[in-house]
Design a protein around this nucleic acid. Structure first.
Lengths: 188, 188
DNA sequence: ACCTGAACACCGTTCAAGT
DNA sequence: ACCTGAACACCGTTCAAGT
């Protein structure tokens, strides 16, 4: 006869780093960064908060790093059809959508020291520009200009800096800025 | 004979909103946002933490809003000599310096709903572009493109997204991006 | 190996009380 | 009006203990 598992482990897939980070992201997206606590995260995973430390020994620090990595890691520019301008335009739109979907982690993306995350994104943008014929230096500068713009604009959108301003069409405004940067890169 | 003040009030100027926010900014700049607590702030002001609530009834929320306002409020573009391009270039440099000096508040600037702070900055940039002859729409888009770039790039710098990258000259890289945006605005 | 329970030091905030 | 002291609910994290 099969041994009945303890109540604590009843029919639940075991905890894992990925499952923890996904649950955390779900909390942040739904309730905001301020409500992400180890205890609440434990509840969401149907586990005591302390169990999390077994999978993330560095605790909450490691959890937040994981969120940044999950959101900011480069979805490489799709090397599909179109010239490099179209490739970058498309990447910018996708990356912005990604940031806005997980707006709660934006403050972490912005200031957590996490070289790997944004570094990879910058590198792949640089590569697109290098293949487009820009010098090494111009490609590196351009990659950061575009990445900086996308992140900064997403931040402005999230804050909704309007107020006195009439209703803003953020989509077209964002696109206008992207065109500005890309056109600038085209005629160097 | 002059009455001796109580120990608690000994020769100390009374608490005030401004003094509180300055002390908080000092803590954030020196030790980071994570170490800004009401109790520590009270210590720095030589007062019990609870006294702060008398001047900031909304508590820590109001304190953080105050920090954002103090750092992000528009230092209006200096209407000095030079064409509008020079004016914007100078403003961008100053604003970046301001953000980097108070890097600890960047995550707050990025995501705290605080319309007044960045709204004023965006408005004065828009005005410069409007007077330069851009259409209302182009001026509004351009103002956000520049502001977004400056904030986003400052964020990239703070994170030090390098790592695999050779030593980066952030100053020239930042300037290159500013030129990119401003040149784009010039030849619309 | 994986999780729990109790404990510790520390938060933000309230409220009645002092002056 | 301005500040204090005690208290409350809630943090992140440790550590020994369970299975």
């Amino acid at each position: 006869m099969v041994r009945q598992p303890s109540v604590a482990a009843q029919n639940r897939e075991p905890l894992s780093r990925d499952r923890i980070i996904e649950a955390a992201l779900h909390i942040v997206d739904g309730q905001g960064l301020g409500r992400l606590t180890m205890r609440r995260l434990g509840d969401a995973l149907e586990v005591e908060a302390m169990a999390i430390y077994h999978h993330l020994p560095r605790g909450k620090e490691e959890l937040l790093d994981g969120l940044v990595a999950h959101v900011a890691v480069h979805p490489a520019p799709t090397r599909a059809a179109g010239d490099w301008q179209a490739v970058l335009r498309r990447w910018a739109g996708d990356y912005r959508a990604r940031l806005l979907t997980h707006a709660g982690v934006l403050p972490l993306v912005v200031t957590r020291r996490n070289p790997a995350a944004l570094g990879g994104t910058a590198a792949s943008l640089r590569e697109v520009l290098r293949q487009a014929g820009l010098t090494e230096q111009a490609a590196a500068d351009g990659a950061h200009a575009l990445l900086g713009y996308v992140i900064g604009h997403a931040a402005l959108e999230v804050r909704g800096s309007a107020a006195a301003e009439e209703a803003v069409d953020w989509d077209t405004r964002f696109t206008a800025g992207v065109d500005l940067v890309i056109n600038g890169l085209s005629r160097r």
